[in-house]
């Protein structure tokens, strides 16, 4: 058995600088959930198939179950908790509620972060673009129809908010 040396990381998680010595045999999802208490990130399959653990690393959606903890070093990470200040809902979260896109809720944080990455790049995605964007996020409850509707509603909400500023 090799004695693992902790690896020192400095990264930004939801806007705050995090300095930790991490055991290289842990994964990003372990650090988020167990050390930082960010339990909004869910572990589904643990193999990169389901997308429940999706977080944004430098703005791109990735599966936190496939990232070794030391790989966080130097990266900017956004989890569902970091989408808005506490007690506020992001327009994408509002849209998910209004469209009835949440059932059991397990896939929702990953879906919403994937939607955020899409809407950051494409402010008015058509149905096909939405379906392609969420093709790495599985949902066992909704049948996806309301999730797709929610993401398009979120686009409209964001556009309206942009217009009113």
């Amino acid at each position: 058995m090799v004695e693992m040396k902790p690896f020192k990381i400095i990264s930004k998680v939801n806007g705050s600088t995090v300095e930790l010595g991490v055991n290289p045999g842990r994964r990003l999802i372990d650090i988020l959930r167990e050390d930082l208490g960010l339990t909004g990130t869910k572990e589904g399959c643990g193999e990169g198939e389901c997308g429940a653990c999706t977080v944004l690393i430098n703005g791109r959606p990735v599966n936190a179950c496939l990232v070794l903890a030391p790989e966080m070093n130097g990266k900017e990470i956004i989890t569902i908790e970091g989408l808005t200040p506490e007690d506020e809902l992001h327009p994408i979260q509002e849209a998910f509620l209004e469209a009835g896109a949440v059932q059991c809720g397990f896939c929702t944080p990953g879906m919403i972060l994937t939607a955020k990455a899409l809407l950051d790049k494409n402010s008015d995605p058509d149905e096909k673009a939405v379906k392609t964007a969420i093709s790495g996020n599985l949902c066992r409850c909704t049948g996806y129809v309301k999730i797709v509707a929610a993401i398009r509603l979120a686009a409209a909400k964001l556009a309206a908010r942009e217009g009113s500023i």
Binding site: P61, V62, N137
Partner: peptide, 8 residues
Amino acid sequence: GGPQIRNQ
């Protein structure tokens, strides 16, 4: 894969 895999 899916979009997440393609990013990584």
